[in-house]
Structures are given as structure tokens and as C-alpha cells.
Amino acid sequence: MSAMTHEEVRELLAAHVMELLLPEERASVVAHLAGCAECAREVESLRATSAELALAAPDRSFDARRCNGVRSRLLARTAADRDARARLAAGQLPEREPLSLRPPHATAPESAGGWRTASMVLAASVAGLILFGGSILVQSRRELAQARESESQRQRLIAGLIGPGVRLIELAPTERRPGSARMFWNQTLGAWTFLAYDLAIPAEGRTYQIWLITPDDRRISAGIFTPSADGNAIATTTYALAADSLTAVAVTEEPAGGVDAPSGDIVLLGAAR
């Protein structure tokens, strides 16, 4: 397209600030603006006008649950971002923007009096993440680079740990054996984050399974996990449960793949207060 005249450009400035021009038109306008102070001033005032158009949007209520959910996810992303920047500054990791932590829209309801197995994401054995004293250490750059999924798992983990609606359930071993665990229940997000330490590695063909125990003695499976070689594990899941519907969290040892109802010994147990 040949160079536009001043008058031709003037005709297009309103469309330009609203990003309505075709690429070649836009290129001509931008080139003209670089050398025309008058048009540049015109663009500034039209841009300000365009920006204010948004204020004409009809009022719509942003309901509290939705608003709080976005807030939690946003702040989890910023926390992860800050963490990533700090690691970048320390030369530890390539920079990568945290992804959105949006939970699924619909969480399957509990079946009446029945059992439900929620899909559990295992992080510890796959991603090389260890939670230690509240900070997340990345065991290996190579592992992180290989497992892109681990990044979103890490962010989901952070989202489950923070926010105003997080309850903590401490789990202790039921016998004289090593191990402990914590379950963070983010009631706003319906997110469950399970962190275990110093657990014995289960025997071949066996696994650990987490259970949410309700006041009417239902035992809802919250997934299975296998600790890493050092006995630590992180697992997360999402499941909507009413605030008054949790009595305890338990961990049992079960056949590999998990079971519909607890059958093995309770290894860890923690009461919900």
C-alpha cells in the first residue's frame, strides 16, 4: 500500500485505536504517526476515549464464590511466579509462567452412602518435588524439564495450601512406626493436598490409599500413592465436601491399584477438628 496522506490517516485514527484496521492499513497509520505530532495527539485522545468505553458495560454481579476462586488461583500463580523469579535469579531454573490453577467446574457429587474414588495425582515419585519446611525444592532440573505436567501440579499444590478456607488435618502413625502426614483441605477450591513424610515403602504389589471419613462413617477414597525412595509423597485431588462432613483422614495399606473399601491396616490417622 502506498503511503497515505495526512487526511487519509486522520479518517482511520478512530478505527486504529479500536484495533479495527487491516494489517496494511495499520502499518501505514503507524508509519505516519511516527512523524506527525498532530495525529499522535489525536490518537492519544481517541485512545483515552476508547478505554473509557469499557465503563459502559452493564453492571454484572461477580458472585463471591467465583470471585474468591479467581482470587485464590491468581495469588497462587503470583506466589509461584515469585518463586520462579527467585530461582531464576539464583540461576537455578529457566523462567516459565505459572499456568492457571482453575479446578474443574463440576465436582462429581458423592453417591448416597456409597464409595467414590477420586483420581489422585501423584507428584512425588514422578516430578521430583519435595515439600520441606514449607518450601518446595526441585530435586533435579532435568526432571522438571522432562515433566511439564509437574509445573501445573506444583501450582495446584500451592493453590491447595493457601487461602482463607484452608483446614489442616495432621495425621500420625497408629503404631510404633515411622511416618507422618498432613492433609490441607482448601474448602474454597474443594482442593485436597496430602503431604507425607518418612513412610515405609510398601511391599511389592501393595500401595497406600487415602480415605476421607465422614460423620456417618462413609469412607471416601481420596486416591492411592506410593512414596518416593526417601519415603516422602505429595498428592492432590479435588472433591467437594461440606464443611461439617469430615471426621477424619486415614491412610491404609492396600493391594496395588487401590480398593473400593478399606481392607488393610490403618497406617496413619488424623482427626478433623
Binding site: A14, A15, M18, L20, S45, L46, A48, T49, S50
Partner: peptide
């Protein structure tokens, strides 16, 4: 588009 934006700008006092 042009007329609308220019009028709006003037009405908003920008």
C-alpha cells in the same frame, strides 16, 4: 466509527 468516537470524546470532555 469515526464520527461516534469523535463525538464520544467530545462529550466526555477528553
Amino acid at each position: 466509527v469515526r464520527l461516534a468516537m469523535e463525538k464520544l470524546r467530545d462529550r466526555l470532555g477528553i
